[in-house]
């Protein structure tokens, strides 16, 4: 038995014969129903393009004002970072750190790692750090919470609507675009293919 011909379901550990579904098809575990793989067309190229787009979009989404509140002629507008600073100034340091990590730092690192990994694979450059980048990215996945943040912007706006008129800035549109890009980015990564290519690259380098 060669281990490369077999695969195990990560959620129920059923030993499976390795089969790669065609593009556009999905493979589910027959016992527990786990989505084993769902290859996308040109996963590496796609990830490379999307992570460049994400990195570009990250800056307007973080620097331009998102939502503003008008009270007595004053406009208070907020960006991601100013919310963190407001919490920090109120002494809620732990909460401020959590918000900073989940809405600013982790998304940036996640896009950055995707760019590094897919860039190396796209240009066929071996790099010994590829493996640790892949592992970091894998562990960060769940802590990128941009879409949760968007929902909380919506709820906050509804709460504030009765208080004062709101104004929406370009930053909000950039933020929505960033969420669409990162969602497509995470959905499009084909881990099996990525690992296989990294294996090939690093082996080729050693000879």
């Amino acid at each position: 038995m060669n281990s490369t011909h077999y695969d195990a379901c990560p959620e129920c550990d059923l030993l499976l014969r390795y089969a790669r579904p065609k593009i556009g098809e999905k493979a589910h575990c027959p016992r527990c129903g786990f989505l084993l793989s769902r290859p996308h067309n040109q996963s590496i190229k796609r990830t490379f393009a999307l992570s460049i787009a994400g990195l570009i979009m990250f800056f307007p989404a973080n620097l331009l004002p998102m939502v503003g509140l008008k009270v007595l002629g004053n406009v208070n507008s907020g960006i991601l970072m100013s919310g963190v600073i407001a919490l920090f100034n109120e002494g809620m340091v732990a909460v401020a750190v959590v918000v900073f990590l989940a809405s600013i730092l982790f998304p940036l690192v996640h896009i950055g790692l995707s760019l590094l990994i897919s860039g190396h694979l796209y240009f066929n450059r071996p790099n010994r750090y590829l493996i640790s980048w892949m592992r970091w990215r894998h562990h960060l996945d769940e802590w990128v919470m941009l879409e949760v943040y968007l929902l909380s912007i919506i709820v906050a706006c509804v709460k504030l609507m009765s208080l004062a008129p709101l104004s929406f800035g370009l930053g909000l549109y950039a933020f929505v675009a960033l969420i669409i890009i990162t969602t497509m980015l995470t959905a499009g990564v084909d881990n099996a293919l990525f690992w296989q290519r990294i294996d090939q690259l690093n082996k080729g380098n050693n000879h």
Binding site: G68, A86, L87, V99, S103, S152
Partner: peptide
């Protein structure tokens, strides 16, 4: 997150 938005605005 909502708290951070409200505290800021």
């Amino acid at each position: 997150f909502m708290l951070s938005i409200l505290a800021n605005l």
